[in-house]
Design a protein around this nucleic acid. Structure first.
Lengths: 239, 239
DNA sequence: CGGTTGTTTGAACTGATTCAATCTGTGTGG
DNA sequence: CCACACAGATTGAATCAGTTCAAACAACCG
């Protein structure tokens, strides 16, 4: 067996694995993994797709973390959504109004809409799966809106920490979160400046809610952090 | 013909009409209108559906304006989405995390998911229609996130005015917008206080961008208002 | 080692909130 | 037709959360 093919098998296995762990039936996950697709590794901070371009492709995140972002007229950036491993971006007719950029080194599987659409059309179970995913993403979007619109800067950062921990598989704040974000990126998600994010972090640590070692965040008082952020994990369940 | 039935025909026609005007094929629109459904008139400001309740129903707005809102732990309210006439809310498996409330007197058509789902399943064209609608709603959500996260209070209010005008069928600011919102509701959408919304309105008027007579808003300088809000109408196109 | 990226801190500033009072328009009952 | 109630709009003054600007510091990497 040639090496490249072996590599393909391994990497396909990786995506199939995160998809099933995300609750997708292994048979259905296989259908997606067997679809023709390019495997692309991208670096953080380097634009991967720009806004204003047709996006007739499916993207799955096999590992790493991908962000959707918009840039305002005045150049200020807002991250509007995140895709963790196992999550993806569905094809879109017409220009997308957001760009894509990795937060950490990320591996993507990129397939054509023309290959993807028929597979979904043939499998009602897949349809239901994606509908539930979309509803989950919508719920997360609403949560972010509440975050930016109605919570103070401390709660916003705390909420993002809770959500990130949860989405990265840390249950009830047990263990240590390897925070994938720079403070600038947290600012771009929570609608603040990096300077203030820094102060909030220092505050949270001073209050004994978290402890930091470099990028590692330990949840010293998860319950209190949750309360402060008014974080209810329910919205992260799919459908 | 008994009167009630005549009334039903008229009101059904009303929904069919707004759906086709929204770009849905008349045949498909008929399929939706013929589905068993209750017609409900609701008053503004009175809660219609609460958060945390299963929502296995389709809702279409025949006339008026409906809002999805969330209430934070501290009691502050954030409106996370709007549904104008012709728009709707798809059934959702599991509890919804938002409540529903009308902004103005509103007529809804409420159908059961068990009636709705098969109709959509049988009609791929309807499926595509709803997918495009969902993508549009997502794009609007992203825009609101940029609004709350990255624009100053003036731009936020100006942007909402532009979007509302556009969604209510006022092209390029020609004519007069009967602003459906109270200043408190605008605050709940844009993440501010009603006091500040009031000041922003006064500012916009003083700058000669709008003129007000009660709830009526006239766009005196649409182009400048658009620029100030960095409003690009593209995101409102469906798919 | 120098270059780059990210974090931390301080001081001055400002946009928006908060609290409170007043004003305006509309609908209701006498 | 007036008196009254009520919701919403408007205004002022004090306060504060978060920004801005600027500089220093730390970590990483080829």
């Amino acid at each position: 067996m040639p090496r490249l093919s072996m590599l393909m098998d391994q990497t396909s296995y990786e995506l199939g694995d995160v998809l099933t762990r995300g609750g997708l039936d292994p048979d259905l996950s296989n259908k997606l993994v067997e679809m023709p697709q390019k495997i692309i590794d991208i670096d953080p901070r380097r634009p991967f797709r720009d806004a204003g371009v047709e996006r007739d492709e499916v993207i799955f995140v096999a590992r790493g973390l991908l962000s959707k972002f918009r840039t305002d007229a005045s150049g200020r950036r807002q991250i509007v959504a995140l895709r963790f491993a196992g999550e993806g971006i569905l094809p879109r007719r017409g220009e997308a109004d957001y760009g894509l950029q990795a937060i950490v080194p990320t591996r993507l599987h990129v397939g054509k809409a023309s290959d993807f659409d028929p597979i979904v059309e043939e499998n009602p179970a897949l349809q239901r799966y994606f509908i539930r995913l979309i509803q989950r993403e919508t719920a997360i979007g609403y949560e972010w809106l509440v975050n930016c619109g109605r919570r103070d800067s401390t709660a916003r950062v705390a909420h993002l920490l809770c959500e990130t921990a949860e989405r990265m598989g840390i249950r009830n704040g047990s263990g240590v979160l390897t925070n994938p974000f720079t403070q600038q990126q947290i600012a771009d998600i929570t609608g603040q400046t990096s300077v203030n994010v820094n102060r909030v972090f220092a505050d949270l640590e001073r209050q004994g809610l978290i402890a930091r070692k470099g990028r590692e965040v330990e949840f010293v008082d998860w319950e209190e952090l949750r309360r402060l952020a008014s974080f209810q994990r329910d919205y992260l369940r799919a459908g």
